[in-house]
């Protein structure tokens, strides 16, 4: 990693610069994997790995959508509250006897609308997304509490709805498959489509994107529809897994999601997003939580460790990235 020795036009150096954030989180994920495999014989077992994927599915699904939001230079703090609202609404709707496919469609619609309203306020009314989604973080949670009066609402077991959270296809948990599918679609869309290119352009330079004829506001608003739908899907999966709906679900979830995305190397300044990084960042956070429990570390300590590791990894990332990129561009 010696920048001064970089020969002009070296393909390897170009590769390193471009993928430094992803490479550094990949290295970090591997270190975590080795550390926990060493710390607990059970960690690498198939059962635990499948469990880890099942549990981290909601996080991954929302983190993929959040990558789009952050790539445009926005932020969505409302996803945890959207999960709670959908969680509660879905349980209420199922209890009222609505057919489960209808409930699924309705809830995804609720997510899209909640996201669309926030996108409109931030992109068309010029209110920073931090403020808009902070207001929704509070408001949506309150709405969910009002609906449930704080109680957990049971979902009658035995319907196909359970499959969303507890089902398996062969050995693979359904939530994990949904998350993998989301990640795959997210990767293709962000990296390989005109829409993904416009998302990046809006985050890199909104006015330049507009001047290039891109519908910049519509793009900036649309990513909140994505995060709303993703949060709704996460809410459905959580409700199905726990067999109940609760307005207290997913408290602090938005911060975990943002941590996973930033850990993956997506820039909070916008203009640079990586789905591969987000997948690795999510898995790293999931591994830390899971591994420390297996090593019988106090769950309180897990929170401290997660915080320290996020800061450490992002710091390393920034240092390595800055070093590799040389004195050229400063963000």
């Amino acid at each position: 990693m010696n920048a001064s020795a970089r020969p002009a036009g070296s393909r390897r150096a170009d590769f390193l610069i471009r993928y430094a954030p992803v490479l550094s989180i990949a290295g970090f994920a591997v270190i975590c994997l080795i550390f926990f495999a060493w710390g607990s014989p059970y960690f690498l077992s198939g059962g635990n790995m499948l469990n880890l994927f099942r549990q981290s599915a909601p996080l991954l699904i929302v983190a993929i959508a959040m990558t789009f939001v952050i790539t445009t230079g926005g932020i969505d703090l409302s996803v945890g509250s959207t999960v709670a609202l959908v969680n509660a609404l879905a349980a209420i709707a199922l209890q009222a006897g609505l057919a489960w496919p209808l409930v699924v469609i309705l809830m995804l619609g609720v997510g899209a609308i909640v996201g669309g309203v926030q996108g409109w306020f931030s992109a068309y009314q010029g209110i920073p997304s931090f403020i808009v989604t902070l207001a929704f973080l509070t408001g949506l949670r309150g709405f969910a509490l009002l609906l449930t009066r704080g109680y957990s609402i049971p979902i009658a077991p035995g319907s196909w709805f359970d499959v969303l959270g507890r089902g398996s296809l062969g050995p693979l948990p359904v939530p994990a498959l949904l998350a993998l599918a989301t990640a795959f679609v997210g990767f293709v869309v962000l990296d390989g489509t005109t829409y993904g290119r416009h998302v990046t352009a809006v985050g890199a330079n909104l006015e330049a994107a507009r001047r290039a004829g891109i519908p910049a506001r519509r793009i900036a608003a649309s990513v909140f529809v994505l995060s709303g739908i993703a949060a709704a899907l996460a809410g459905l999966i959580t409700a199905a897994r726990l067999g109940s709906g609760s307005s207290n679900a997913a408290v602090g979830f938005e911060l975990e999601v943002i941590a996973a995305v930033v850990l993956g190397g997506t820039s909070l300044f916008g203009g640079t997003g990586t789905i591969v990084g987000t997948v690795l960042g999510t898995l790293t956070i999931a591994m830390i939580g899971n591994g420390l429990i297996l090593m019988h570390v106090s769950p309180f300590f897990t929170e401290i460790a997660t915080g320290a590791i996020i800061l450490g990894a992002v710091w390393l990332n920034a240092r390595v990235f800055a070093r590799l990129a040389g004195p050229g561009r400063r963000q």
Partner: peptide
């Protein structure tokens, strides 16, 4: 100039008409 710094040369040339 109104370029997008994090997008590559070809991407900037075709910005808005990919």
């Amino acid at each position: 100039l109104s370029l997008c710094d994090t997008i590559d040369v070809a991407g900037n040339l075709f910005l808005g008409r990919e």
